[in-house]
Design a protein around this nucleic acid. Structure first.
Lengths: 195, 195, 195, 195
DNA sequence: GATGAATGAGTTTTCATTCAT
DNA sequence: GATGAATGAAAACTCATTCAT
């Protein structure tokens, strides 16, 4: 299903692949949507379980953030086809499941937002940084590894990708000496609500 | 189709929505796949056409990059449902179309990579920045606006989003005074091929 | 239509092939069935018109029969694809047309039955020969040339085919000296109605 | 399908007639063409199986040929609608199946050609008789019984039909005493290749 | 519990037919 | 008269789901 997409995979395909009968699948899953829900939330839950142990042991919030980001990218890389499912098949999920998926995604992002918040509080990160948006960006970079793998795979290694993206988020692209000159176009003026 | 997904939209739906008969659609499109191809490449082509005029008139490469990124986010925001199609329905496209979509995506990213290259050449951006990866990240931030709109929409305005993401990419999250301390975890050591 | 079959030929095909618009065809023919009817009865009528001139000028009934059979085979050979239509597409015709086709077929056969009757009356053909069945057989041999052309074409020429089949019908396969011995298995005992 | 023609019979019709669901038919047959192929080759194969037992037990080649012809006509009569399918639906079959049908037809004809060859070899049949063409004619007479049943059925019984056609092929229509006079129009001159 | 044959609603696609221009 | 864009009913085929064994 991860390989062929939700609609490209029939229940008979799933059964054949699993070496069981279609009937048996229906004993464990209400219907095809429930199967998708199980698979997707399983994958998302996997992320959630992998991050804490990887982040443990780092007192420095930036190092903790980095460890979390690296672990995130790695677990995505290990289950690349599965990682795409949640992205692609949102339309195929019943509302309730989609909400649960979003929730899991937020929880995962929250795991990365925590050290970001700590870093801001500790004065290591600039005041104007939105810890959650930073965490979100890092998680997106993780997904991007799966989504754009066709392009990235023969340009950069996973380790370098993690390195580069993290460095970009941390110290930016612009040389410190020029930064001042661009202050006006990077003003965090509009941050806030939508009203 | 943008709203319900490729598989969630029957040709009857398309016809009813367009106020024409099914048969007429088949006069203009070989089959459903061809319709998807037309829609998706049309959307992607639209991006490509919008960026150059928006970027013209800026001599400074960073300002040009910013204008391109802003335009990119705006055009995506205007056609949000359509923007998701290309992401989600890769599996539904015949190989040839998928290749064309990837090509268009690269062309668009190239438009953003140009000023980034100029900035590095001009010494405005740090040497270690990969201009293409930076452009890719910005384009991803654009897509992310569509993809995660459910979450972002009531947290941040589009203008603020553009501002924040661009600022992050440019000057980074870490305060200049602390940057030196993290040099070791942001070393671009592994940058390069896959060998 | 003769080449691709009734169902394999759309009205748009017919129009394109004829270099006119679909609408124009519907000005001349009520519907597709009527077009088939016109084509088929036209072909059958063509047979009917070709036989009399070919048979004229032969006083001897056997020679007249032979001339008719030869002409029949030749006209079929000239319009082979068309000849198959009447055979194949019986199920596609409205009852009335099918009846007309059968009628035309009987009329054609009648043209061959006439000299056969004369030959029997003149004592040239054996008493037990059914002139109509003989005519029918000859007409079948004609159709067979079209129907089994894939097989016959590289085994025998049309001229030889006409020759052979006519000779078989006239003088039979069994040598005269042996004929007597098989009289019992060729008795025309059961000839007659079905009632 | 035999009654209404291939195109005149929808899969729904087939399913309803068979008392099963459409889906079930697709479990046993790839598609509609495969169903036609199965039906037609089944029928043709049936002919092939019926002839040998019917022909066994006759030492005399002419009697063996007659028994074969009679059996052929009878099996066709028993499955009249089916017999027409192969004739009519050649255009509806995929190339491979059509080839198989032709092959089966040749095999069946070969069963009749064998005794004809024996008869010629034994000097019972005239030298100039082409055993295969004779067999082909007889098989055509068999098909003709199905094809022209609408006409023949109330004119002649099957038994009489078999009798008459066989007699015609064997001893011909022309009285022995007149045969000599027509020798010139029945010369087997052109028999042979197509060059 | 486990199976997989059977179901039939739903989908894509075709094409005879119409009718405004 | 001539056109061909537009229609929509009908056909082939798929597959999630059920249920007798």
């Amino acid at each position: 299903m991860a390989r062929q997409g939700y609609h490209g995979t029939s229940m008979q395909d799933v059964a054949a692949d699993a070496g069981v009968s279609v009937g048996l699948i229906y004993r464990y899953f209400e219907n095809k949507e429930a199967l998708l829900a199980h698979v997707v939330t399983g994958i998302m839950g996997g992320y959630l379980r992998r991050l804490p142990p990887a982040m443990a042991g780092f007192d420095d919030p930036v190092l903790r953030l980095r460890a979390g980001f690296a672990a995130y990218c790695e677990v995505i890389d290990e289950h690349r086809p599965g990682a795409l499912l949640a992205y692609r098949e949102g339309k195929s999920m019943p509302a309730g499941v989609l909400d649960r998926v979003k929730e899991l995604e937020l929880e995962t992002t929250e795991l990365l937002a925590d050290p970001a918040r700590d870093a801001v509080a500790a004065g290591i990160m600039r005041e104007r940084v939105d810890p959650f948006l930073l965490a979100y960006d890092l998680s997106i970079f993780g997904h991007m590894w799966a989504l754009k793998h066709w392009y990235l795979t023969d340009r950069i290694t996973l380790a370098a990708y993690i390195d580069q993206q993290f460095a970009l988020c941390m110290s930016g692209a612009i040389d410190a000496e020029h930064e001042l000159g661009y202050r006006h176009v990077m003003s965090p003026s509009a941050i806030g609500g939508n009203a």
